[in-house]
Amino acid sequence: MSAATTQETVQTQGPRTPKVFRARTKGAGLGLVAWLAGLLFFLPIAWMALTSFHSEEDAATNPPSVAASLTLDGYREFFGSGGGASPWPSLINSLVASTASTLLVLVLALPAAYALSIRPVKKWTDVLFFFLSTKMLPVVAGLLPIYLFAKNTDFLDNIWLLVILYTSMNLPIAVWMMQSFLSEVPVAIIEAAQIDGARLPTILTRVVAPIALPGIAATSLICFIFSWNELLFARVLTGVVAQTAPVFLTGFITSQGLFLAKVCAASLVISLPVLAAGFAAQDKLVQGLSLGAVK
C-alpha cells in the first residue's frame, strides 16, 4: 500500500473516531443513569426488608439503626404467634379475588379485543375511548351506591362481590391493551383457520391466544396486581369473612405503641405473590408490552 493511500485512509477514518467515542460515552452515561434509577426504585424495598428484620425499638430510632441486630419478631407477630389474628384467611381471600377476577377479565376481554382489532366494528376508536373513559370516574364517587346495593342484596362481606367489582374495574384497561396486542396477529392465519372450518371459540383459543400469549400474560399480570393491591372497596365492603390482605395490613397501624417493623414484615410478605408473579412472567411481560407499543 502506498503512502498516499495510507494517508487517505487515515484522513477518511480519522473524523469517525470522535463520533465513536461520543457514542460510547453517551451509551455509558445512559447505562449509568439506568442503574441509578434502578437503585433509586429498589432502595425503598431493600430498606423495608431490612427494617422488617429489626426489633420495634431499633426500627423506631431516629436516625434509623442500620447495623442493629436482626430478629424475626416482626414475622412472628404477622403470622399470629403472639396471639394475634392469622393472616392466612386474608391472603386466601386476596388470592381468590385476584385470580378469579383476572380469569373473568381475560374471558371477556379476548373476544372484545378480537372484535375491535382483527374484525373491527364501525368506529372502533370511539368504542375504545368509551371503555377508557369509564376509568376517569373517581372510585370514591361510586362507593356509596355500590355499598347501598351490597347492603340491600346481602352482599356485604362477600368475596364474590369483590370479584365482580375487580372484573369491572380491570376490564376497560384489559380490552384497551389486548386490542393493541391482537392487532399484530396476522389475519391470513385466521382466514386459513376459517377455511378449515374452525369456529370463533376455536380460533380464539387455538389460533389467536397462542400468538398473543405475551400480550395476554402482560394483561393478566397487570390486572392481577391491580386486584391484589386494591384497598378502598375491600376496606368498606368487607368485614371479617371476606377481608383481603391489604385490609389485614392496615390493622397493624395503631395510634399507640411501635408497629414499624411489624408493618414492614407484613408488607413484604403481602408483596411476595406480586413480586413472584412479575419475576416469573418478566420475559413475557416485556415482550408483551413491547409488542403492544411497536407498530
Rank of each mutant, 00 (worst) to 15 (best):
E230V: 06
D154Y: 15
T61Q: 10
A68Q: 11
T244I: 07
V10N: 12
L128M: 13
D157K: 06
A4T: 12
I225R: 01
I189G: 02
L231Y: 15
G197M: 10
A234L: 10
I216S: 04
V274Y: 02
A68V: 07
G38Q: 06
K19P: 00
F224W: 07
R24W: 15
L104V: 05
A46W: 07
V236K: 05
F21P: 05
W47L: 11
T17Q: 10
S86M: 08
A293G: 15
P64D: 14
F248S: 05
V286N: 11
L132P: 14
S65T: 11
I211Q: 01
L95P: 03
F42K: 02
K123C: 07
L268T: 13
T254C: 04
A293T: 08
L70N: 12
G288P: 03
L43P: 03
M178T: 08
S183D: 09
S2Y: 11
A34P: 00
F41T: 04
A174Q: 04
L144M: 12
Y147Q: 07
I164E: 01
S271V: 04
W88E: 12
F224N: 07
V163L: 09
T12G: 03
C223Y: 01
L165H: 02
F130H: 07
T51Y: 00
R22W: 13
T125P: 07
D58E: 14
L182M: 15
